[in-house]
Nucleic acid binder design. Sequence first.
DNA 1: CATGAATGAGGTTTCATTCAT
DNA 2: AATGAATGAAACCTCATTCAT
Lengths: 201, 201, 201, 201
Amino acid sequence: MGRREQNKAKKNAALLQAGLELFLEGGVERTSIEQIAAQAGVARGTFYLYYDTKEALFETLVDGFLDPLMQIFDRVEAGLDKAQGPGAALAVYQVMAAELAMLGLSQQKRVLLLFREMRGPSMDGLRARELALIERITELTRLAMDRGLVERGDPQLASLVILGGIERLYFEVLIGEIELGSPAELAAKAAVLLSRVLGVG
Amino acid sequence: MGRREQNKAKKNAALLQAGLELFLEGGVERTSIEQIAAQAGVARGTFYLYYDTKEALFETLVDGFLDPLMQIFDRVEAGLDKAQGPGAALAVYQVMAAELAMLGLSQQKRVLLLFREMRGPSMDGLRARELALIERITELTRLAMDRGLVERGDPQLASLVILGGIERLYFEVLIGEIELGSPAELAAKAAVLLSRVLGVG
Amino acid sequence: MGRREQNKAKKNAALLQAGLELFLEGGVERTSIEQIAAQAGVARGTFYLYYDTKEALFETLVDGFLDPLMQIFDRVEAGLDKAQGPGAALAVYQVMAAELAMLGLSQQKRVLLLFREMRGPSMDGLRARELALIERITELTRLAMDRGLVERGDPQLASLVILGGIERLYFEVLIGEIELGSPAELAAKAAVLLSRVLGVG
Amino acid sequence: MGRREQNKAKKNAALLQAGLELFLEGGVERTSIEQIAAQAGVARGTFYLYYDTKEALFETLVDGFLDPLMQIFDRVEAGLDKAQGPGAALAVYQVMAAELAMLGLSQQKRVLLLFREMRGPSMDGLRARELALIERITELTRLAMDRGLVERGDPQLASLVILGGIERLYFEVLIGEIELGSPAELAAKAAVLLSRVLGVG
DNA sequence: CATGAATGAGGTTTCATTCAT
DNA sequence: AATGAATGAAACCTCATTCAT
């Protein structure tokens, strides 16, 4: 990479970092492009060389979480297709859980940003991705039911309840205003509660 | 009520209604006071005779849901204090469920508004009320555990999971983009899933 | 008129005057709304209470000339309809000439502005009005030919040549860089030249 | 010409062509240097290697018409000086007419650009050239009067009227919104009308 | 009480111009 | 010579808020 490209990459990273922090502090709506540029250490006009709008910057930020998230589910789907027997399927789900945990931990701020802005107005693009996500999770739940891994029931309903529970827990962990114990313990206890929703075993 | 007061009440109601609709359409931030005044059929200056800022109007709107919600939990707490035996306690919880359903149904738009804006920035006042809510729910769960109505466990964790599940379900119902069946059926099925989290019976 | 309306009218007049002067000095394109507001002695935002864009202000300015101009031709047309005999028709044309002269003299700056901006880009609305004007003049010429007041010929061609000649003369008079003698003398001599194009007599 | 110079010439031509088209489409003011460079297929910075400002490019464009135009009049003046007798003088005028026609036909876009921008602001340099042009035409007219080729009269006035008539006709031909018949016919008929202004014969 | 005209701060966006590569 | 990234001035426009009527 030439000196020029390196510099561009550095500026882009600075803009993303500045956007992430400011969006979390004051929300996308209340953050001005001027603020982002200043925090990133570039001129106002420079912002527009990288992103057309602050919404585009926001999308790049959440895509950094949503794209890998979707890829995890892609791999799960492929894995379940090949899996023979309940043991193999269970292994796929366990790998998924580990990958989700890794992703969630490595992208904490982006996830928090996503939670904060997701239900806001003019987030139609995001809502579409959320719906796609819900569909995929529902499909995985349905498969698990079909294979007898969990109790039979309404896969969509169960998926929504679990998704909501995880969201709320994760949100409170990220915010950190409630004492919730060590992450490891928390994860273990949450897994027990959520598996009850599905009726595992 | 005199003519004057009647007129004031009518204008106030018009402002609340206009704010509710516009906030839901475009979000609080993107809605201008001019828009609200116009939709309510009053002059811009008149808005300030009723509310200092549009955030004050917003708070009045969500208070219309949050205050009754808190009152329900107040009554539950008082009821449980007086309740003697598991049967009486259960009756209190059932009344609570009915009241929550009524409230949720009668204030759908305000609840949706709350969901939409709750996690946004500068909603510190709201966050405080949310934390208070979580504390109360946790307390109710703890009581239920102490009295042997549900399985012993971490009351806070269970409360958060249940709250998250309900939020997500209710949100999807209000948005209406996902086919979820009749409300009555949905409520019944959701009650089963959520009671599993608590380990009822 | 109440105090408020009087004030509004005064501000509007100030904006029109400021716009006229600044547009003439630097052209519509190069004049900023801020300049206009400052020259008119109002705040930037106030401009937008009166006009949506500076182009709207410009249109109001030229309409102040174009509307009366069109009305003159309306009256001529009506007059010629009623006129019986060449003498009456000629009288109509003479009244027209007098009215045009009055209008041109009373609106000099607006006419100059019109000349300056007319052929510029994004003046589609103006061009349409210009074409309408050309059509009307052509029609008058055709009528004069039909009635034997002037020599028979191509009415459109003659109209365009005369219009162009008048435009150029008027433009030079308004600019004042060329010594052209007294207006009265000039008008008389110009009338002779232009009537030759039509072949009067 | 070496490779280097050939390349430079090609780029210069591309810039001129791009400027001509874009200036006609959107006006000089609304056209950005970036647009010109892009259309010419060069980088933004490269523009500045050829022209200091877009106004310089504009001037080069109109000079491509104005310089030859002035040279025609130079030749006419020289020709009239040498011409002995009305016949020879007339021949000079006829050559002039032919040359003007050729020039006007070969540079249509540049002429249209000139018409469009000529009366705009900050075109002081252009206005000076226009005044020089008017002086020369007036001189030619005066000469023709002195030699008895046309009727005696105010040469400046006649020149302005003729110039205006030609401008308007040529402008309408270039714009093409008015049906004006074949150029040859039009020219013949226009010549008749304009010669009447001068009182030929 | 109610109005809506006026204000000016603050946001977005474009663009001529410079300069390191 | 040529590039195009970066700059920051300057334009546009909106809006919460004030205040005379």
